[in-house]
Amino acid sequence: MLNNKENSLPTWIFFSNVDATLVNESARQLLAWSGESFGRLLAGTENLLDVLVDGDHRLAAENVVKLIGLLGACVASNPTPHPSVRELFTDCVMILSRKLAELPREEV
């Protein structure tokens, strides 16, 4: 996805305060819902969310992809998610995917 050259700089994706807050709040509700069943992936997901809501509201493109995967695993941790869980997941993925799609093709 990113340039594989050694010492290459990450491609940063910047989020508005509104988008960062919506992803953070929706994702944290997903994490609370999944609870213990999400297990060892919880800390990594929380770390990415903490970085997102930090002052710059930015994530490296590779971490946006990782966050989408982690949130998908969170939802999949329960075989029968409540419809509101699907809505939270959809909100997160729509914002994160839109940001990835805005990158110039050579950056993806």
Rank of each mutant, 00 (worst) to 15 (best):
L49F: 15
S34N: 01
V51E: 11
E25W: 13
N24V: 00
G35I: 11
A32T: 15
S26M: 07
G35M: 08
L30T: 10
E36W: 09
Q29S: 15
S34D: 05
A43T: 03
S34Q: 06
N47I: 02
R28Y: 03
L52S: 10
A27Y: 00
T45D: 03
G55E: 13
L42R: 10
W33K: 02
E36N: 13
G39I: 01
L49D: 14
A43Q: 03
E36P: 13
L41N: 15
W33T: 07
F38E: 07
L31K: 00
S34T: 02
A43H: 07
A27Q: 02
Q29L: 15
V53Y: 01
D54I: 00
V51T: 11
G35N: 11
D50L: 13
G39T: 04
W33L: 06
R40W: 03
G35S: 11
E36T: 12
G55D: 15
E25T: 10
L41M: 13
L31N: 00
L41C: 12
V53E: 04
L52P: 14
N24A: 07
S34P: 00
L52C: 12
S37P: 12
S37V: 04
A27I: 02
L52Y: 10
D50E: 08
L52T: 09
T45N: 06
S26F: 01
A32P: 12
E36R: 09
S34L: 01
A27D: 03
A27T: 07
W33Q: 07
A32W: 15
T45W: 02
S34M: 04
R28M: 11
G44E: 07
V51Y: 05
L42H: 12
T45K: 03
